[in-house]
């Protein structure tokens, strides 16, 4: 599949307005993406306080660099690239000083959560997303499993399965080739599957 550019016309218009001094356009961009960027950083770093700070830092970076934004990629992927880079760099710094919430041992899943997970993974009946979302214990297990992945795999799964980016957008955000996205995502899902299976043992 050829690499495609995904331009959100509304975003580009808002960016242009913002550059022309329309601060309302900036507010709209922030309002549109603050929740998504917060979720992205939270899923990658698994710490609400860090996620809040990283989200804030992301928008500060966006403002600082908007003049250098040339529109070669969409504002959406450009903003997410900033968020991912900030978060991964932050994770590296934390790992370097030997402190990371993701490195903490995962608490043993309670029985209810394990049963729910077993049903999803082994039952012939496929659950709906709502079934999963309403099961708090199951969600905790999945979040713990995500936390057990390495940063590279966790990031690509978050971008694809939570943020819903297509492969071209992921390649844009991570600044990698499309083939790398395919192989990395495949390995990441395989690793996640193994971790989830481990919860059932």
């Amino acid at each position: 599949m050829a690499h495609q550019r995904h331009i959100n016309v509304e975003d580009e218009v808002l960016v242009q307005k913002w550059r022309l001094g329309d601060t309302g356009a900036l507010d709209r961009l922030v309002g549109k993406y603050q929740g998504r960027i917060y979720n992205l950083t939270l899923k990658i770093c698994a710490n609400p306080d860090d996620a809040a700070e990283l989200t804030q830092d992301t928008f500060v970076k966006i403002i600082e660099n908007i003049k250098g934004f040339e529109g070669r990629s969409s504002f959406y992927t450009w903003a997410f690239r900033i968020a991912v880079n900030l978060t991964l760099n932050y994770r590296k710094r934390k790992a370097a000083v030997g402190f990371s919430s993701l490195n903490a041992p995962v608490a043993a899943a309670d029985e209810q959560g394990r049963r729910a997970l077993a049903d999803v993974l082994r039952d012939d009946k496929t659950p709906t997303p709502a079934d999963v979302a309403e099961n708090r214990e199951l969600c905790e297990i999945v979040q713990n499993a995500l936390a057990k992945l390495d940063d590279e795999h966790r990031t690509i799964i978050v971008l694809r399965d939570i943020e819903g980016m297509d492969y071209a957008q992921i390649a844009d955000v991570l600044a990698v080739e499309l083939g790398t996205v395919k192989s990395r995502l495949s390995r990441a899902r395989a690793a996640l599957r193994q971790i989830l299976e481990a919860f059932l043992r």
């Binding site: 929740g35 979302a133 996640l192 989830l196």
Partner: peptide, 13 residues
């Protein structure tokens, strides 16, 4: 596996 991740409820900032 994909369903489990994508069904995670988004956290409200």
């Amino acid at each position: 596996c994909r369903l489990l991740v994508s069904a995670l409820p988004p956290a409200e900032p």
